[in-house]
Design a protein around this nucleic acid. Sequence first.
DNA 1: AACTCTTACGTCCAACGTAAATATT
DNA 2: AATATTTACGTTGGACGTAAGAGTT
Lengths: 295, 295
Amino acid sequence: MDYKQLEAFEALLKYGTYSKAAKAIYISQPAMTVRIQSLEKFLDIPLFKRNGHKYTLTVAGTVFSNYVRDIFNLHKESLQAINELKGLTSGSLRIGASSFSTYVIHSMIKNFKESFPGVHLSFYITNTTSAIQDLIDNKIELAIIASSYDANQFKAIVIGYDTLIWAAASDMPISNCQQITREELEKQCFIIREPGSNTRMQFDNWCNQNGFYPKNCLVMSQTEAIRRAVMNNLGISLISSYIFSDEIDNRKIKIINVSDIPIERPISIVMSKNYSEDTLTQAFIIFAKSYFKCK
Amino acid sequence: MDYKQLEAFEALLKYGTYSKAAKAIYISQPAMTVRIQSLEKFLDIPLFKRNGHKYTLTVAGTVFSNYVRDIFNLHKESLQAINELKGLTSGSLRIGASSFSTYVIHSMIKNFKESFPGVHLSFYITNTTSAIQDLIDNKIELAIIASSYDANQFKAIVIGYDTLIWAAASDMPISNCQQITREELEKQCFIIREPGSNTRMQFDNWCNQNGFYPKNCLVMSQTEAIRRAVMNNLGISLISSYIFSDEIDNRKIKIINVSDIPIERPISIVMSKNYSEDTLTQAFIIFAKSYFKCK
DNA sequence: AACTCTTACGTCCAACGTAAATATT
DNA sequence: AATATTTACGTTGGACGTAAGAGTT
């Protein structure tokens, strides 16, 4: 079955005679005959019957024509969709993101620009709570967060998954333990995020669920400050694996094996419920999905 | 855009490398390259990007792939539908029909048999009321009627239109009147159907609406008896134009011009609400629609 | 070095148009 | 007789595969 055959089929259906149909699609009458014949031979059933000096559909032809119509519509729509994407040569999108994205957005922007060089992406990196507030205040169109949100006010699309791990510098004694006891854990200094951060909430939840009361905490609102603190043996941290992806490869950081960890969090793009997704937004969402899938 | 290009696109999407994709659809690697290149050239946008030693979709590729998936599914479904029709080499369908169909079913059956020689159609010609009763009694699967029906109990599909006309023999004096007066009309003998017939109901309605009281009526339950009576100058009749289609062409019968006439009635195929339409039924409905369209 | 993709090039098939024959009105 | 469709046949373009070259890991 071939596109040209379907084209001939539609033309004959529309114009009723071979000669008119052939003229309409700029081929000769014999070519029309051959296209219809080969289609009928392929399907092994007559699609047209002679009726006076007009050709009309058989039952099989009628059934088939419904599919052909739908196929052609999809074909047209696909070209339209592609053209819309090609039209994305300008425009901008303001995106709020919680802190784990610090270590990925540079490559996201770089990758996105390869496909859409004229589009400007602005990233506002804060924490989950602030990103949601910025969404309400119309300071951003989209928020990328790794936590839940109010489904009454927002709609969201899951674009990937983030893993929270316990990270420690490789030369810390705790990094070499196979099984971590509660006593060893209690000795540690916990480097944690500020309230309002989803990562902080996950830490608090874990402590509650395990009846664990950390004695020694170091609170830092900047993820980069936490990264440097962990690298310099100041303590251990429950944090997104994205932050230490390079260091884990380098073996400078080790993942500590603690129960109920790692925690996997879905990463979502959140937007106002009444936000109408334009082509640019759709393109960004598709891009973000494939970006995180390859991570 | 070509079917083979889409085939190559789907294969590369599925297998990730040109070599595997080419092998999967039984073409050489260079042929694969050419197909993808020509598709990208046609759409004027890259659909794949190299990622490590695998090819993954760009945003445009992702958008396009959704359409391609749908197009291929439709393609498969269309072949399946055609195969189901080809499988219609046996089976039977019992069809009730009100009387106007007397003069069409012979050619309907003949035409239907050309496409589906193995299928047996049984026609039961009665009047509208009886046909509906036969439907309730499961004596027939479908009823072809030209009147309304109980929408709570039945479902229906309009397949065409029937025209009720006033017919008189050409050599009757009334046939030569341009404008018919009420006095002239009152002199006529009205050849009408029995109660229960929708044609009879239409006649009664017309009389009521026009405050007309026919003095001279001849009731006949067989349409063929009415036809012969009209042909032999026994009177005039309000009747489906199908009955006299030959005679109108021959000029043996004339259509009398009376106000509010002709009456057009939709012809429907009616079936039980819980009747599940199998392939044969669907084929018959499509056939019937095209049959009446060409009438 | 091994693997994968692209380019180059000669081959071949399939779709086409012209022209003639056949069918239909 | 005129119009429409099919058959016949020679031509051509484009899709293919093989082989060689270029790019990646």
